[in-house]
Computed example of a mutant assay.
Amino acid sequence: MAILVVGYTPGPANIYALSMSIRHGKRRVLNMWLGLLVGFSTAIFILALLTHLLGTVLGSYIGYVKYLGAAYIMWLGWKIYHTSGQTKKDNRDCTFWSGFIVQMTNAKILLFDLTCFSSFVLPYSNRLFDLLVVSAMLLIAGPGANLVYVYIGTYLNHFFSKYSKQSDIVMSLALALCAIYIVLN
């Protein structure tokens, strides 16, 4: 249940996926979502491997990732606000690599994944296989939730396009709040 709550509540990758789907529609945003999927998979595989090799020692250092993630999230928020009102063809932010970077710096998911490893796996096993099984289940919380936000954005595209400036401001502020929350926690 915690996986679903953390994964499906608004966070940096979900808000970014929603914003890009509103601007670009389902066809183009699925390429960006593929970047989210690959970025999440890469990040969680690296975390699983490091957790296997270093155990709980990794937990004391992963907190530094949050500052990099918060800075990138603030940049995303500024970019959404700054490009508000531009036509779809003018905006180049909806790419595989933008999705990949969002997930690789998504401190919310990285910290949650590490918490899952240290709470649900490490007390019982340090085997890489067990960590990878939990990693596969966490795909539901990361890219699975991102895809839900993509479809919500494409479904509500007509509504949001009427109020594009206002929705861009709200998304930018939501990303800024995510970044502030990450830094303060």
Rank of each mutant, 00 (worst) to 15 (best):
L110F: 10
L110S: 12
L30T: 05
L122S: 09
I46H: 08
V121T: 09
C116W: 05
G142W: 02
A71G: 08
L122G: 10
R23K: 07
G7D: 02
M137G: 15
W97Q: 10
G85S: 07
A136G: 10
M137F: 15
A70I: 05
M1H: 13
V6H: 01
I73Q: 00
K165Y: 15
V5T: 13
I15Y: 07
T87A: 13
L132V: 12
C116T: 13
F160L: 00
L34Q: 00
L58K: 04
T9A: 05
V133T: 08
D93E: 12
L110E: 08
Q103K: 07
S84V: 13
V133S: 02
Y181V: 15
C178A: 05
T105V: 10
D168P: 13
L68A: 15
V65D: 02
G85C: 05
W33F: 11
L131F: 12
M74T: 13
V148R: 01
C94R: 03
D90H: 10
I46A: 10
N91A: 08
V134R: 06
F159H: 13
M171I: 14
V102T: 10
G59R: 01
C116Q: 12
K165G: 13
I3Q: 07
V148D: 01
S161Q: 11
K162T: 13
M104H: 09
Y181F: 12
I180G: 04
I180M: 05
T9W: 11
C116E: 11
G25K: 06
R92G: 15
I3M: 12
A13F: 11
L68C: 12
L138A: 04
L47P: 01
G99T: 04
W75E: 01
F117P: 05
K89L: 12
I46G: 08
G69Q: 00
S164A: 11
D113E: 12
H24W: 03
L132F: 14
F117C: 04
Y163R: 11
A17R: 02
Y16T: 13
R28I: 07
L122H: 08
L47Y: 08
L50V: 06
K79D: 11
I62K: 05
N106F: 07
Q86A: 07
L18R: 02
H158S: 15
Y67N: 04
G55D: 10
F45A: 06
S118V: 11
I169G: 10
V148A: 00
S60D: 14
T95W: 02
V134L: 15
F117N: 03
V29R: 01
L50H: 04
I15H: 03
D168H: 13
T105C: 08
Q103I: 04
S161H: 12
C178H: 06
L50F: 14
T95R: 04
K108H: 14
L184S: 13
A70L: 05
G153Q: 01
Y67W: 08
I101A: 07
L34A: 04
L173G: 05
D168E: 05
M20R: 07
A13M: 07
Q86E: 12
N157S: 13
L76Q: 04
D113T: 15
L111I: 10
I140P: 03
I180K: 02
T95C: 08
L34H: 04
F159T: 08
Y163K: 11
S135K: 04
L47Q: 00
I109P: 01
Y181R: 08
L49S: 04
W78C: 12
